[in-house]
Write a protein that binds this DNA or RNA. Structure first.
Lengths: 341, 341
DNA sequence: TTGAAAGCGCTAACAA
DNA sequence: TTGTTAGCGCTTTCAA
């Protein structure tokens, strides 16, 4: 007859050790022999034991929390509620954190002081950190100080990560545009150091090369304003552009605004494919055809991993990126009026 | 010499009572005489005592949490990360809940089963509930069962609430459009039972009446699709409309899409003013002129009130609603090309 | 290396 | 009405 919720006492009893020993192996602190570690771990899995975070917090005096880290030049944390991507990671995290009395701590760290802030967070971490948006070197730095971390963007090897196929997604976007008949496909990329941006850029480059098209690239910042300005500039430099691949929906929304303001029409004069499938895609006018990232699932998986004691070194998990067709890309071979509405 | 963090023991000692008595008065449960209550309360304020939520949670076996309630016909909680308004209330709540080891619990309750779900939540509540979106009767129902609640939308008298001037905001929006030279100003309203929607509708009606304009109203649902459809219908019925007041930005984004799709231009043919100033306003094309609601501050204030033991019966707090000028409304008296870009 | 025992700060029986 | 006393589930000295 199993209890509703096994406690560490149950684990200790089943393993035939003291509570203290059980605690030691569960927390991975030295002071327990290999054979006992074995037995305790067996008991843990057999019982499906999950530590009570409330009790831990009371005993240690420290808050149990998952630290969500995003490096950004915008200051404060208040604006994050208006950020389509961050809102989705929060929404993904919240339900899994709910049952265990853990908290979410949101850190917006500035690029210039990032190193120090990262160290600070790493030294105060309890359950671990989720990197919502970070550069590989910073991620590595954190990981060197604290093993409990999982990244939602690509990082270098030892750092565990949730992987979405950004390269493949970008290629697919360009392919789609190509199939629709477009041959002058420009791109607006994200920040030079952002791993997602780097991969999406790589995907674009690969596809254009393979298809024998010119590389028409502009740099953006993953913000709407940047997308707007980049589109404007692109249109001036290359007035013959007939399609645009934009590395995130927020920038794509800005790009649509710029294109429309320039007197051109989307998708009649230029087709656009975005990336993310955020609320921005749906609020844009016309609504954006885009590559969907399963952000909520990625975040939820990351949190579960952390609650389970942190993923193993180098752990990686794949997530699909899927084309969502809306109204911002048009089939050139179809009748003008028809489009793909 | 004051301790870093006073405990209930300190309070009890200072008040000259037992810990149990202190606990009783702090938790407002019967079993303490008036004079002792006095003394304990004095000690609490003198020490600046704040209960340790972690210890409370461990002792009671219940999670300390703020329940965020939104009644909606969409099921599940995952999509809330893509909801511009909810994301903002979450962002406002998160920082204040951070320091105290409290959690946020998000409840999306369905309208048909709302009564039961509300009862359920009320009976499990700990720190209290924030009504992000609710009808007055449901709010009252909750409040009858549990005094710890703050509404972010208008409610009937005893229920404490954060008040934004939705009526005044809607009036101001219509006035603004009127000043710009518009005389056929239609409106897309929100759900019939939603207090914010009701107030914004009232503001529109008041303003149009005062200004001697026709009431050109259509019903929406606070979702993009509803805004789209309502705009379409409005344009068919009243092709001479020159401006639109839309009760939320999400619907306004949909309305812009519908208007554009019908071959008209925003703001050249029809001006639009939205409400909220959410991310939807900024992603729309053109970006929306809108009435800004300080959602984050309202949410943060609500949470602080709850953490401080819950606001008094009938407590009310005012928040401003401000016009934010972007590009979706045009001055008819200005030159055609100029607009108000 | 292991276990016994003392808390962490609070609530809730139970006695008085 | 009041206080005494066990816990809540865990970590962490301190002895053994």
């Amino acid at each position: 007859m199993s209890m509703l919720k096994p406690t560490i006492e149950d684990v200790a009893q089943l393993a035939g050790v003291s509570r203290a020993t059980a605690s030691r192996v569960i927390n991975d602190v030295p002071g327990a022999s290999a054979p006992l570690r074995e037995r305790v771990r067996a008991a843990v899995t057999e019982l499906g034991y999950q530590p009570n975070e409330t009790a831990r917090a009371l005993a240690t005096g420290r808050q149990r929390a998952i630290d969500v880290i995003v490096v950004t030049s915008r200051s404060g944390v208040g604006w994050l509620g208006t950020h389509p991507y961050i809102s989705r990671v929060l929404a993904g995290l919240m339900p899994v954190v709910q049952g265990v009395n853990a908290q979410l701590r949101l850190h917006a760290v500035s690029p210039d002081t990032a190193a120090d802030e990262i160290d600070e967070i790493a030294s105060n971490t309890t359950l671990g950190a989720v990197f919502a948006d970070i550069t590989p070197d910073l991620a590595a730095r954190f990981y060197r100080r604290c093993r409990h971390a999982v990244s939602m963007v690509r990082t270098d090897s030892p750092v565990p990560g949730m992987q979405a196929d950004n390269i493949g997604g970008a290629e697919e976007a360009v392919n789609y545009l190509y199939q629709l008949g477009h041959r002058r496909i420009a791109a607006i990329h994200g920040p030079a150091l952002n791993p997602c941006a780097i991969d999406r850029r790589a995907g674009y480059l690969q596809a254009t090369q393979r298809l024998g098209m010119a590389d028409l690239s502009a740099d953006g910042d993953f913000l709407r304003e940047g997308g707007h300005d980049a589109a404007q500039q692109l249109l001036e430099q290359h007035p013959d552009i007939d399609a645009l691949f934009v590395a995130c929906d927020l920038m794509a929304a800005g790009a649509v605004q710029a294109i429309t303001a320039s007197g051109r029409r989307v998708p009649d004069d230029v087709s656009i494919v975005g990336f993310d499938d955020s609320i921005a895609a749906v609020c844009s006018n016309p609504p954006l055809t885009t590559m969907r990232l399963p952000v909520e699932e990625m975040a939820a998986t990351a949190a579960r991993l952390l609650l389970a004691g942190g993923p193993a070194r180098g752990h990686r998990q794949q997530f699909p990126v899927e084309l969502v067709v809306r109204e911002s890309a048009r089939d050139l071979s179809a009748g003008r009026a028809g489009g793909n509405r």
